[in-house]
Write a protein that binds this DNA or RNA. Structure first.
Lengths: 150, 150
DNA sequence: GCATATCTGGATCTGAATATCCAGTTTTAC
DNA sequence: GTAAAACTGGATATTCAGATCCAGATATGC
């Protein structure tokens, strides 16, 4: 339901959040996240424009999170690359509907709102902190002590 | 977040549900729903394959709901034209993840599941029964007595 | 039976999302 | 200061959803 680009953006942010101290090159991130390197560059540019990551050019350059993973929400990442389009007004432009959506579009927009709310309260740090043996982007079953590094 | 095609399909079903006794031609539905007629034909074909509508060819032909609006859910309509893709396995194909999703993909899939659940419990009839002055597809403010026709 | 209405299915067109490529710019190490 | 590392931005290619078109099949009314 979310686009491929959103998936890529989330992978990149999670990868950066997994090691917040070091600078990752686009190449290294692409390998880690299994995203086409040339396309990931574009995604990273979007994330940089949204002030979620900071790019550093030149030797030893790369990308780092612009702020702690604990204050970056999934919603921010989603909106950086492909904003969730809430239904603001009647898609059929029926005059009598205007801002007050009919029951069909209200139902759909309520669903969007629900997703927005969930994404807005989920931080990247909270996702990484979950005691899940399968760690994002890592093929090894995660040992619990890894979590303490966060 | 949902595709344009899903929006079109829902409009068509809601239009048919608003007058369950008569047969609507694709042309008439297109006018009512403001969907490109030639494209709506394709959408209706998908709905027919999913056994949500029944097509009748020839003079006086057209489309009718295949079953009462009270037993057609939004989810069925969505799945008829563009199935909600739940995350079944690790998108990176990491061996150690397999069926057990990591916390990132679990979070995303949980959101999908939430939407699926809401759509699965909302019937077309329940949407039309809501006391909302703005009636789907109708430009006139709906009088409450209209609801009794259902 | 015949003309007309209507859906069906295939071929095609268009535009947006996805993906690639490369020349240009910035930064660092030496 | 120079070469190499790395991001930037623009141009281009590819893929697919969205949309169109039309000949063919089917059903009805007369």
């Amino acid at each position: 339901m979310l686009s491929q680009t959103v998936e890529y953006a989330l992978r990149a942010i999670v990868a950066l959040a997994g090691d917040e101290t070091t600078s990752w090159t686009a190449q290294a991130l692409a390998a880690k996240t299994q995203v086409p390197a040339s396309y990931l560059s574009k995604v990273l540019q979007s994330l940089a424009k949204a002030n979620l990551v900071v790019a550093q050019r030149g030797r030893n350059g790369g990308f780092v999170l612009a702020k702690p993973a604990s204050v970056i929400t999934v919603l921010e990442v989603v909106n950086a690359v492909e904003p969730i389009q809430r239904i603001q007004k009647c898609p059929l432009a029926l005059a009598s509907h205007g801002v007050r959506l009919c029951s069909l579009h209200r139902m759909l927009d309520d669903a969007y709102a629900m997703v927005e709310r969930v994404f807005g309260t989920a931080t990247i740090a909270s996702i990484l902190a979950e005691p899940n043996p399968a760690r994002p982007l890592c093929d090894q079953a995660g040992a619990l002590h890894v979590l303490h590094a966060l």
